[in-house]
Design a protein around this nucleic acid. Structure first.
Lengths: 411, 411
DNA sequence: CACCTATTTGTGAAATTTCACAAATAAGTG
DNA sequence: CACTTATTTGTGAAATTTCACAAATAGGTG
């Protein structure tokens, strides 16, 4: 009989929907089929039993982010990735997930998608699991078809994205026209995000990154493309004109990339939000500049995410270039350094912390674990030694600038 | 008899000293002869009557600065310049100057030098004045001889100076060797000073400037040369390694140039002090850079004198160039500007003053003649509108930098 | 070691800044 | 004009910073 039943999927299905319905009827439970990024591909109809998670998935055409996150944290998705066998998933009420069974659709160790089936009025048996496994095998062909179609679309979109990135497209109106064919609701504004890895980005890595990008629902990624070391996105924030969604997205992204896939050597940067698509090129440059600056930043300094936030670091290149040309270190800094060496003191360090703390004695002293009066004393000495006035905004600006540039220069 | 006496100077004198002695004997009073810059050329011996001013002049081989200043302020030197006639000078006790008579040695309206004679036990008569005038006429030839000699020396020194300025001389030891022939006490350190006029520097202007430079005893000018619009000096401060003498000198210089000769359209800059003469070239560049920055500075900002004090303005060129290239005005500034226009406010101005006053609410408020709380309120608004933290040193640095660059950009 | 100077820390009063609140004024809108 | 909102100014208490002074400590020198 097992032998017999193992062939029930050996027929043709005219669509994924029909296939879903067939599984649903066979195993007596509502079925959803997702692609590798948890985007809904098909779902069965006439379900008697359903749950909140499934409803949201169908409504949003993707599995809600919190559900995905939960399933990761519970170790369910990793298990699905590791072994191509059906997994029983107990109820998780917090996310409205009823008891169900799932299996990954795998070809050559590569996950193409997932089949989910909710437990109806009877518990799933060993045999049900066996059948689900068979269904997953059968689904491989179906999914490959779907994916080859999307891949083709993807190619033409990538090409277009490159034309945007390189500023090849000069007619805003024409761009809008083209974009409206892909995005029914015209994007309000978008920024380029660049992810740059140290090593070459492998297919696996790309898949992981794509996975995080598409499962995250904090931003809408309009375009995505990939080069040797970098992945480039055009992202639209959910709240129009607000970077904050993008910030969350990127912070989450970095965290999850490390947590789930152990990738931590990736640098990100984001250009400015812009409502004109002619500005995509600029935004791209800006994102690259952010990464460039981050790579030079001393390790103890927090990386920048947005071009807007670079402040004077935006000019770092020009400045360092001029410094190198003139082979010039600021006389004040040199003097202090010299003094520190011959007198075995830490005045430059103290000054640095003082300036970094906005000239706040107390904070600076705390940062160095010294008494406020000590800090004050030292700053007095500094004023004497390099003949500056630490109440003068321009002098402080110049010093902090020089010090910050020195930090960058060597890297 | 007058006719007769008018020819008493028609003989040859083997030296200026002999000439001075002859005048002294004829008019019965101690005589000093100075060049156009009040440097001592010769003085009579066997003086019975003398005064403090004369003694200091002889000891220092130049008229003391305070004496010159006093004589200017009393209008005596201007009178000497205006008319080539002897002038009676009453006693001025403050500067130890006894009663005397003076005349300028003039050729074609050009002052070559001065003869001074102190009143002995008898008052000078009209006739004495006449004789002094005759002596001055005779002195023209003598001085021209002296000056053609110094001019030749001057030429070779100027040539050498140019080689220093252009970095043509590469052997520090050889330079020291050469310099020691000119300066018995080897200069300890020196800086290049550049004076740049708006118009071409005329001979008169040059003479006036040279006059001020040589009569000022606040610095020792080792070299001086002149181009179309600029005069270049190599100056040694009297207190070794201290710019302060140079500062006084320059401040005085500017003041006197305006006061005495009505020249106010001159820009000055001073490079760094350096004890190596290989660095003269650098110091020259630095001085030029100071002038360059000053010329771009908004009018309400005080000019810089020293390269050391430029601070970040040293980078202004690079920065503005980059800004122009990227056609980038800081988004924060633009936003504020826009807000100010549409809401008819002055937030950018307020922010600027706030930052210029080192984030000191009280001072900033005073500068704008508004209440402190108003200032605080406005800065709160600024923080909201452009989303910055005005307690963050880097953000403040970036803002003040941008604002300062905007000031420069347009000039 | 004694001695001198530079530095660090502690203490507390005086000066200054910050902050909340309220009143007055200005500016914009239907 | 009435009404709302944004801005300016005033007031005073609370918090913070500054400052002077003194004591303790460290470092270097003869």
């Amino acid at each position: 009989m097992e032998n017999n039943l193992s062939h029930i999927f050996e027929r043709t299905f005219s669509s994924l929907e029909e296939f879903a319905d067939f599984i649903s009827e066979t195993l007596e439970g509502p079925v959803t089929i997702e692609d590798r990024n948890h985007r809904l591909l098909a779902y069965s109809t006439h379900e008697k039993y359903t749950d909140e998670a499934r409803v949201s998935t169908i409504i949003g055409r993707r599995v809600p982010e919190k559900v995905i996150n939960k399933l990761w944290r519970k170790g369910i998705i990793p298990t699905l990735h590791e072994k191509a066998e059906p997994v029983q998933i107990p109820e998780i009420t917090e996310i409205g997930l009823g008891s169900r069974m799932a299996v990954s659709i795998t070809k050559n160790n590569d996950v193409l998608g997932y089949i989910w089936i909710i437990e109806g009025n009877r518990a799933f048996t060993e045999h049900d699991a066996f059948l689900l496994k068979e269904a997953a095998n059968k689904a491989v062909t179906q999914l490959q078809q779907v994916q080859s179609r999307t891949k083709e679309q993807e190619r033409s979109r990538q090409e277009y994205f490159w034309r945007l990135l390189t500023g090849d497209l000069q007619n805003e109106h024409a761009i809008q026209e083209q974009l409206s064919t892909w995005f029914p609701s015209m994007p309000n504004s978008a920024a380029v995000i660049v992810l740059e890895a140290n090593e070459e980005i492998t297919d696996t890595m790309d898949k992981n990154i794509t996975y995080l990008i598409t499962t995250s629902q904090k931003v809408k990624v309009l375009f995505k493309t990939r080069e040797q070391h970098t992945i480039i996105l055009l992202a639209e924030p959910l709240q129009p004109q607000s970077k904050e969604g993008i910030r969350w997205f990127l912070q989450d992204f970095m965290l999850l990339l490390e947590e789930r896939f152990g990738v931590s050597t990736i640098e990100v940067g984001c250009g400015r939000l812009n409502s004109s698509f002619m500005a995509v090129k600029d935004s791209y440059m800006e994102a690259m500049e952010v990464i460039h600056v981050n790579r030079r930043l001393p390790l103890h300094r927090k990386s920048f995410l947005f071009y807007d936030e670079l402040g004077f670091y935006r000019y770092a290149d020009s400045l360092i270039k001029q410094k190198r040309q003139e082979n010039l270190t600021d006389p004040a800094i040199t003097t202090l350094e010299q003094y520190d060496i011959t007198h075995n003191r830490e005045l430059l360090k103290s000054l640095t912390v003082f300036l970094q703390n906005d000239g706040n004695m107390r904070k600076a002293a705390n940062a160095l674990h010294i008494h406020v009066n000590t800090m004050a004393y030292r700053m007095n000495r500094v004023e004497e030694i390099i003949n500056v006035d630490l109440n003068n905004a321009y002098q402080k600006l110049s010093l902090l600038l020089e010090i910050s540039l020195e930090e960058l220069k060597d890297r």
